[in-house]
Each structure stands twice: as C-alpha cells, then as structure tokens.
Write a protein that binds this DNA or RNA. Structure first.
Length: 423
RNA sequence: GGUAGGGUACCGAAGUGGCCAACCGGGGCAGACUGUAAAUCUGCUGGCUAACGCCUUCCUUGGUUCGAAUCCAAGCCCUACCA
C-alpha cells in the first residue's frame, strides 16, 4: 500500500498534491473522495481518469467516497469553462444520480457486503436545507476575498469578455464545504480531482484547516489529452458515454480501437489495470509492428469488457469483424439486426425506399439532417449501401439493395453506420 | 444610475446602404493517401433544386429608402469603467 503514490506516478495519474506529508499519510488507510458532475445520466470517457484513480485507491485498501454534485451541479463549475452553464433542474439531477452509480459500479465496489465498500453521496442532501444565512455565518467567514479572487478559474473568467456571475463565483465555497462535510461525517482526509480542480480542492483543504485545525490533503491528476492536444473522450464531437443506450458497444469499442499510436501506451497505463510489465510488452509490439494495432486492441478489449461485460465485448468484436471484413454477403437479416442492435436506425415504408434516389431516402430516414446534406454526402462518394460505395445522385434503391427484402446497411464515410428497415 | 463599447451562421471574426446566403480562421462532414493511426492535400458546410435559380437569415420590434446586416427610433441582453 505504501507505493500507491508510485503507482499513480507511473500511470500518469499524478500531477500535484497539497503537501508532501500525503505520501506518509497514504501508508495507513485513508478515506478519499472525488466528485462527479451530474450533468448527464451517464458518465463519459472523460470521467475515466477520476474513476480509475478511485479504483486504484480502493484496491489499495482505502475507503472511497464518490460524491455526486447534485447541489453543485445546480450551480455549475466555472473551472475550465469559458461560459456560464445552463442550470439543471433538481429532478434532472435526481435522475442522473441513478445512472452514474450504475456506471461507477463497473469499476468501484459499492456492495455493502464487501470488506471495503465504497459509498456514494449526493451533496444536495446536505445543501438542500442550508439557508443563505447559514452559509454566510458558518462558512462564508472562513473564506477570504483575496484568495477567492486570485483563483485561476476566477481570474480567467473575470478577464474574459463574458465575465462571471456571483453564482459561479460561489462554486468554490460549495465544493470547499463538501470536503469539510465529508471530513466531519466520514473522516475523509483526501480529495482527488483533475488538475483543473486544484482551486476548488484547496478551497476545501483550507476550509477544513481553518475550522478544525486538521490538515487534510488534495491530490490532482493531469487532464488527459491526445497527442494533438485535444481533450480526451470525444469522438467526432460527441462524448463517449458509459451507458450503452447512449454509446453502443460497437462505438465504445471502436473509440478505443482508433487510438493513435502516440497515445495508446499512455492510455493503457491510465485506463486499465494491466500490469506495467504487460504494457511494456505492448509498447514493444507497437514499435515493431504499428499496423497490427495490437495495443489498441488490448485497450479496447479491456475497457469494453469492464464497462459492458464479456457479452458487450463480444457484440462489439463481432460487429467490427463484419464491418471491416468487407462484404456482407451471406449474412442473414437477423444477424445484421443483432450486430447493429445499437446503431441508429429508421424504418420507412417500402414504397418510400424502392426506386427512390438514395439521397432522398437517407434524408427521409434521418441519417442526414437535410436533403442538402444528404445530397452532399452522395455526390462526394461518402455513402455506402451494404458496404458497397453508392456514387452519383441518380443512385436509386433497387430490390437487390434490401437484404431479405427488408434491410439495408448504410454507411457514411468509413465509420458511421445506419440501419434502414423497409416495411 | 452615468459613460463608453458591443450583440453577424456551430464558434471566433470581417462586412458599416445595392457587387451579401454574407471575406477569412477554427470546428464539423466527406474524398485522396494510409494501418479503422497521425500528418498532408482536395471538396462541401442556411433551406429547396440535377442545375439556372428561388426562399428564409445578420438580437427584437417598428421606421427611413426603389433597395438595409449596414441608416433612424424604441426595447432586450452582454462587457468595461465610474457612481
């Protein structure tokens, strides 16, 4: 357990800590927490680092608290945001909590029967009855204006054209109080977060110190970017979700399979529990034969298995095999239905498909946002029907394009599939 | 409350009476090259249209004008400084 910090460092999970004393403190089991934003009913790939950090700590014997920011989510964290967020409704947050715990349970053990179960808390539970007066009297007096104003997240926003509202400014007070509350209630003495959370985390450690005189710790991990500097976790502008209803098994698997060579080893360290020796082997493999994408495959498999289980992984791999294996000949409509169970699809009356120009059909089916977009796609040769390129605006749907007379697999570009049913 | 500046397409940002569906950059979507990589190059990126073209747009509402994103008035919102 004493080398948990070394593990973090070796796996790119360590950026900074509030005090070197933390290294010693980690020799005995601590209670640690990290926060998640309930902006959605599913966590995203961007949350993986936090999740993995907590999971490592739990495995090392520390007590883990996952905090869902039901209250702070109602406010919106200004860190790293150039604009104020839309506020969430309380009911929305409530719904999102359920999904988030489900996601977390894939990585972190919440089972109360376990020897060291994690717990999930919602800060709305302690903020809902807090009055403005309570806040000012009990917490506000411990916060110094100079410190608050000098936070990076505040300074940046003040300098931007949009400025900052009081609501957002107070975010650090709420997050700071979270830490105090968890310290008081559960003896929590360590908060984890991304490096963008530094200001909020220190707000907490300082509040605890001022009120109780106790030193508590904060630790941050680097924000994960790919080698071109883009924030990790988005594919073609869309977030990768852990919930299969939002991101199908296939897309989830593919997202990791498409990882760049330059990133894949680092990702293996961060996002998997594979032993470092195994990762070193894979590093060799990438250097020797990058085109085999062995490391990418392992990465995609590991994560898909963890999040979606063996069954989800099997579906994703089968689909990958079929789609990148070339022809769809010999596959029954029922097989395709199963493989594409989570792919966007639409059903149209057969009369609106057969004999109609392909671009009109894909616009009607919703694969393209407008006829103009559909036309563009077809004109530029970006549309494939059943894995065969369909060029030309005059391309029409023929009966032979429908497998068993009812199904067509449409693809735009290389990666984006759409299932069309004719009824 | 005062003063100044500002609100243009997904974002940033030109345009300041007709040549404007609106320069340019980013992003996005495709194509070529590839290893389902990166980099690079090419096309597209309001709606309808095979196309000519037509239609709806430049915060809102009115107005001036043959004609407005551009001028005027009122309103809404944002920012900075002052109070």
């Amino acid at each position: 357990m004493s080398n948990i910090l070394d593990t973090f460092k070796a796996r790119h999970l360590f950026e900074d800590m509030t005090s070197p004393e933390l290294a010693k403190a980690l020799d005995t089991p601590l209670t640690v927490y990290a926060g998640f934003d309930p902006t959605n009913d599913s966590l995203q790939a961007g949350n993986f680092v936090t999740i993995m950090a907590l999971a490592h700590l739990q495995r090392a014997g520390h007590k883990v608290i996952a905090l869902v920011g039901g209250a702070t989510g109602l406010i919106g964290d200004p860190s790293g945001k150039s604009k104020e967020r839309n506020l969430l409704s309380a009911e929305q947050v409530e719904r999102n909590l359920v999904g988030i715990q489900e996601n977390l349970s894939r990585f972190i053990d919440f089972n109360p029967q376990s020897p060291n179960p994690a717990i999930l808390v919602n800060n709305y539970d302690w903020f809902k009855s807090f009055t403005f007066i309570d806040l000012l009297r009990e917490i506000g007096r411990y916060f110094r204006m100079g410190v608050m104003l000098s936070k990076d997240s505040v300074k940046k926003r003040m300098e931007s054209d949009d400025g900052m509202s009081f609501t957002e400014f107070c975010y650090q007070i709420l997050q700071g109080y979270d830490f105090y509350h968890l310290y008081k209630t559960y003896g929590c003495t360590l908060q984890l977060g991304g490096s963008d959370q530094w200001g909020n985390i220190t707000a907490g450690t300082e509040l605890v110190r001022r009120i109780s005189g106790q030193e508590v710790f904060g630790m941050t991990f680097p924000l994960v970017c790919d080698s071109t500097g883009k924030k990790f976790g988005k594919s073609e502008g869309n977030a990768i979700f852990l919930d299969a209803r939002k991101t199908p098994y296939y897309d989830f698997y593919q997202f990791f399979l498409r990882t760049m060579d330059a990133d894949v080893i680092r990702y293996l360290k961060i996002f998997t529990f594979l032993p470092m020796a195994r990762i070193a082997e894979l590093e060799q493999a990438v250097a020797a034969a990058p085109e085999r994408r062995e490391a990418q495959q392992v990465l995609a498999e590991e994560l898909t298995r963890t999040v979606h289980g063996e069954q989800g992984l099997a579906v994703a791999k089968k689909a990958t095999q079929v789609l990148f294996g070339g022809s769809l000949d010999g596959l029954a409509a029922a097989d395709l239905e199963a493989i594409f169970a989570n792919v966007p699809s639409a059903a149209l009356p057969a009369a609106e498909v057969l004999g109609k120009p392909a671009f009109e059909v894909i616009a009607a089916a919703g694969m393209a946002a407008s006829k103009g977009e559909a036309r563009r796609l077809v004109q530029q040769g970006g549309l494939s029907i059943n894995n065969v390129k369909a060029g030309g605006l005059d391309r029409c749907f023929a009966p032979t394009d429908l497998i068993e007379g009812r199904l067509a697999v449409l693809r735009s570009g290389k990666k984006s599939f759409f299932l069309l049913r004719a009824e």
